[in-house]
Design a protein around this nucleic acid. Structure first.
Length: 445
RNA sequence: CGGGCUAUAGCGCAGCUUGGUAGCGCGUUCGUCUGGGGGACGAGAGGUCGCAGGUUCGAAUCCUGCUAGCCCGACCA
């Protein structure tokens, strides 16, 4: 992408409406524009990152054997009456009427609809296990939306649902999700710690929330510092291997890590004092096992091996895709702007031409641009007729992890500069070396 | 939903107390000079002062009502 052609309305000053850093930076970096309270338009730069995050979620879901699909945002109230949640959900559910005066709603989650689809088409235990998911817009009419996309009313969420014959099978599905989520967040450059949580209106006994530690987090969290030493890494996973998923689940959930909802002071005090931590966290996902709550209420049964009907065991799992943008920025920024982790960066590398119009500089930039594109990477080339300072400030603000600076001074010696956004370190090298270096960095990611 | 605050140009703000027909910085357009961390000079464009009503010869300014947004608390991907 050439910046001269890009729609990137960056702001030099902080908008008054934004109180926390991720919101401020998303507005300043031209990623989002508020449309009304808790509802945002996603401008090209924001949309680009949103899709990157979405892609990672899809890829990791596919690895775990889960099937993507898409359900409508507007649903009939009837199904929700069947589960009893039409009354339980309260003011957070946006209720609307169609022209025939029928009660409709904007989906806050989709257990009812997926259960209805399931019961219409699945009747044998032989079709189990089954896990379906979607990434779709949700609406919850929050009393007080705030913090930009971190707590919007409209938000983009991955929501998945598993159907299993027995509790044991459903708990494997639970573990499988926990494992796949660990890798999903890690790929985004985040450490998201699974913490024992409270189930809320979805119901059920077993549930973990994934929290990213950040000062601006809405939840208070208590944990054993040993959990932050755990990393998922590149390990090979067989998602059908019950024992493997179980052991990874135990590895990541045995040490004390709870939100204030489930915090147990006595248990916490068993953690060695030097490892006890109290912090704040941003919830970026949650997994549930809720047994037959919905299958009983909505008569979702399959025939078991003995020919008798059995209510299926279910669980649901969510990742707050749009919230993740805020969470990642909260966890990765400095006073100049965003610092995107390589896994989610909107563009892989920025090219700054210090003297637009200088024949040599222009040619060098064009050739870098072509080489990156040919290598399957996406460069963002600042080809505007701006001064160096302005170009650097913009690059720092939007936070691409790597920047190549091209100017007449360096080209005289045959070199350009490769700069890390994170460390600020610059290294001079030939353009060919810079291309190889950047290709190398992303080949590993 | 309780408490507090705000609404004037794309963004950040002043003007309101004491009514006289709107201003500053940034951004933006054009020109000249500049050119390795938001440069200088000159010339422009851009506003039904959130909406509705009232007081007044006259309202951004005073009064009433409404709407929207933000912050703090109780609730949530």
């Amino acid at each position: 992408m050439r910046m001269s052609r890009y729609f990137l309305p960056v702001l030099k000053e902080d908008p008054a409406e934004a109180a926390i850093v991720s919101h401020r930076l998303m507005l300043r970096a031209g990623m989002i524009k508020q449309s009304s309270a808790g509802i945002y338009s996603w401008l090209p730069m924001g949309y680009k990152v949103l899709r990157k995050i979405e892609d990672i979620v899809h890829e990791e879901q596919a690895k775990a054997g889960h099937m993507p699909m898409l359900m409508p945002t507007i649903q009939s109230a009837d199904l929700w009456r069947e589960s009893g949640r039409y009354d339980d959900y309260g003011e957070e559910m946006l209720r609307i009427k169609d022209r025939h005066d029928r009660d409709m709603l904007f989906t806050p989650t989709a257990e009812e609809l997926i259960t209805d689809i399931f019961r219409s088409h699945v009747s044998s235990y032989k079709d189990l296990p089954l896990t379906l998911y979607q990434i779709q817009w949700k609406f919850r009419d929050e009393r007080r939306p705030r913090f930009g996309v971190m707590r919007g009313r409209e938000f983009y969420m991955k929501d998945g649902y598993n159907f299993d014959l027995t509790k044991e099978d459903a708990l494997h599905a639970y573990n499988r999700h926990l494992v796949s989520y660990l890798r999903t967040y890690e790929r985004m450059g985040l450490q998201a710690i699974p913490m024992r949580a409270d189930s809320g209106p979805i119901g059920g006994d077993d549930t973990h929330e994934f929290l990213v530690l950040a000062e601006t987090g809405e939840s208070e969290v208590f944990y054993d510092s040993a959990v932050t030493d755990l990393t998922f890494g590149d390990r090979e996973i067989d998602f059908d291997d019950v024992a493997q998923c179980q052991s990874i689940m135990e590895e990541f959930t045995t040490k004390y890590a709870r939100t204030d909802e489930t915090h147990d002071e006595a248990l916490f005090n068993e953690v060695p004092e030097e490892r006890r931590r109290t912090a704040r966290g941003i919830e970026v996902g949650q997994i549930f096992y809720f047994g037959t709550k919905y299958s009983d209420a909505m008569n979702a049964k399959v025939q078991g091996p003995d020919g008798k009907p059995v209510a299926v065991h279910m669980g649901s799992h969510g990742i707050g895709v749009s919230r993740l943008l805020g969470a990642i920025i909260e966890a990765s920024h400095d006073d100049k702007g965003i610092i995107w982790p390589e896994g989610v960066t909107p563009y892989h590398v920025g090219i700054v031409n210090l003297k637009q119009g200088d024949e040599e500089a222009d040619t060098a930039c064009e050739s870098l641009y072509k080489e990156f594109t040919a290598a399957g990477l996406e460069p963002l080339y600042d080809d505007r007729k701006e001064r160096a300072g302005g170009k650097f400030a913009t690059m720092d603000l939007i936070g691409l992890p790597w920047r190549i600076t091209v100017g007449p001074r360096g080209l005289k010696n045959g070199v350009v500069e490769l700069t890390s956004r994170k460390t600020g370190e610059s290294t001079e090298m030939t353009p060919a070396e810079a291309v190889a270096r950047v290709k190398d960095i992303y080949a590993g990611a």
